[in-house]
Structures are given as C-alpha cells and as structure tokens.
C-alpha cells in the first residue's frame, strides 16, 4: 500500500493509536447503526464510519495486515448486502400483497406493528453491508492496482 504522503515505514505512534481508535470507531459505528431508527444514524452512516475505520487501518499498516485482521471478500459482502435488502423488500411485498392495493405508494415496504422494527432493521443491515463492501472494494482495488 503506497499512499502519496508516506511510504509504509513504521510509524509507531500512528500504528498503536490506530489499533485503539479503530476499535472505538467500530463501536461507534455499531451504535450508529442500531440507533438509526430513533436518533441520528442508520445503515448509511454506520457503514461509512466502519469503512473509514478500516481505511484508517489501511493507512496505518498495509493491505496484508488488514487482510489478516479481517479476511473478508468485500465484493461478496456487497452482494450479500444487496441480497438481504432485496429479499427483505420483496418478502414484505409478497407478504403484504393485500395491503398493496389499499395503501399509498409510500408503502412500498409496508411494515406494520411489531414486525416493522425487525424488517426495517434487516433492510438497513443490507444497506450497511453494501456501503462497507463497496467503499472497501473501491479503496482496496485502487490501492492494490500497482
């Protein structure tokens, strides 16, 4: 991993603080994700924050290190996220076909009562995974490109 600013010489301060900070950012991202339904946050932001934490790791160490910590194929992560979202959406559609004719357009994903939190969360989880997956795919492929 080469960045324009620095070669990956061992910057002890950056590395040790990164391990610490990344962890905090992760926790914050998880918090944001779950808080999304009631307070600021959600899948987008959670995903982006997670991705930025990973980018930090990338900057501080290099790609190999990141691979060791998190051996994930980000393209598959994107695909899984898409799948979750689509399935949630279509599942709701199928499940609520009778509703569809009555309700407005806004009810593309009609979620009522107790089930709502659940499925909306699933959908958001898909969004989260896609955002993390795509961001990391982009960063990683560019970083690996030479």
């Amino acid at each position: 991993m080469k960045t324009p600013t620095k070669k990956h010489t061992n910057d002890v301060i950056l590395e040790s603080s990164t391990t610490f900070i990344t962890f905090i950012i992760f926790l914050f991202a998880v918090y944001l994700f779950f808080a999304g339904h009631y307070t600021p946050g959600g899948g987008f932001i959670g995903g982006l924050v997670t991705a930025s934490a990973l980018v930090l790791v990338l900057l501080a160490f290099d790609i190999q290190t990141l691979r060791q910590i998190l051996p994930v194929d980000y393209k598959q992560m994107t695909a899984i996220g898409m799948l979750i979202s689509v399935l949630t959406a279509s599942g709701a559609l199928l499940f609520n076909v009778p509703f569809f004719t009555h309700a407005h357009d806004y009810f593309n994903l009609p979620l009522f009562g107790k089930t709502s939190l659940h499925t909306a969360m699933l959908f958001d989880l898909g969004v989260y995974l896609v955002v993390v997956g795509v961001t990391m795919t982009i960063i990683q492929t560019i970083g690996e490109s030479d």
């Binding site: 982006l48 982009i138 492929t141 560019i142 490109s145």
Partner: peptide, 20 residues
C-alpha cells in the same frame, strides 16, 4: 440529499478510476 451524497461518492470514485 443523503441518498445523493452516497451516490455521489460512488460516482466520483468511478470517475476517478476511469480517469486513472
């Protein structure tokens, strides 16, 4: 706008790589 921001990010990244 939230949607737009995220899409913008994707598109900018795409452009950048295209240029590269």
């Amino acid at each position: 706008v939230l949607t737009a921001i995220v899409i913008n990010f994707g598109v900018t990244a795409f452009f950048l790589v295209l240029a590269y």
